[in-house]
């Protein structure tokens, strides 16, 4: 493992959107990468019940270099949102100094939360460029990998391949790379602007 896990200590991640966006799979990929391919620990929980049928969908992953004792996410360090509703519900819970990642064409932010690092990606559009809108979740995971640096991209790629049916592997790996490249370019650009840790940065759209 090594890479980010021990260095970062316990990290809480919440991924939220609406049903059908593959929120749970995105969380699974991140958890698998950490727990199986990087030898760390990951605990994933998801919202069940009436609120999880149709409508909204949320999954939580806790990553750590140590065994995880408390199973729930209380104040996420990283929030990934793919719907306006998810943003409205969960953004206030983001930890100060935390990372907010949004699907920027699905989430309009008028009054961004204070004191968080903010990254936007047009994941649905990038997925559509690959011909399949359904892989937007994996585009988001790729983007997450590039902007957070928490996990080895290769672990995540392995986790992607391990989590989808063989016939869908190529497409999903392309989606991951597409999101990753978009994120890497964004980070690069921000660095060039001398703003590697952007606070409330509005991305172009």
């Amino acid at each position: 493992m090594q890479r980010g896990l021990t260095k970062l200590g316990l990290t809480e991640i919440r991924i939220a959107g609406f049903g059908g966006q593959g929120v749970i799979l995105a969380a699974t990929v991140i958890g698998k990468a950490a727990a199986i391919f990087e030898g760390g620990y990951a605990t994933m929980t998801q919202s069940f019940g009436p609120e999880a049928r149709g409508g909204s969908s949320a999954a939580q992953v806790i990553l750590s270099g140590e065994p995880i004792l408390y199973p729930y996410v209380t104040q996420p360090d990283i929030l990934v949102v793919m719907s306006q509703e998810a943003y409205t519900v969960f953004a206030p819970q983001l930890k100060p100094g935390g990372i907010l990642i949004v699907e920027q064409e699905l989430v309009r932010i008028d009054h961004p939360p204070q004191g968080v690092r903010f990254y936007g990606v047009p994941a649905t559009r990038l997925a559509e460029e690959l011909g399949r809108k359904v892989v937007l979740n994996i585009v988001m995971v790729g983007f997450f990998a590039a902007v957070t640096h928490m996990l080895d991209p290769d672990s995540l790629r392995q986790a992607v391949a391990d989590s989808v049916p063989p016939a869908m592997q190529k497409l999903n790996l392309q989606a991951f790379d597409k999101g990753f490249e978009y994120g890497a370019e964004l980070v690069q650009r921000l660095a060039e602007n001398g703003d590697a840790e952007p606070l409330l940065l509005e991305t172009e759209s």
């Binding site: 699974t28 727990a35 620990y41 605990t43 994933m44 929980t45 069940f48 995880i68 199973p71």
Partner: peptide, 10 residues
Amino acid sequence: DECVGHMTEK
């Protein structure tokens, strides 16, 4: 319990 049953780990 529901927590253990629905929690995903290695």
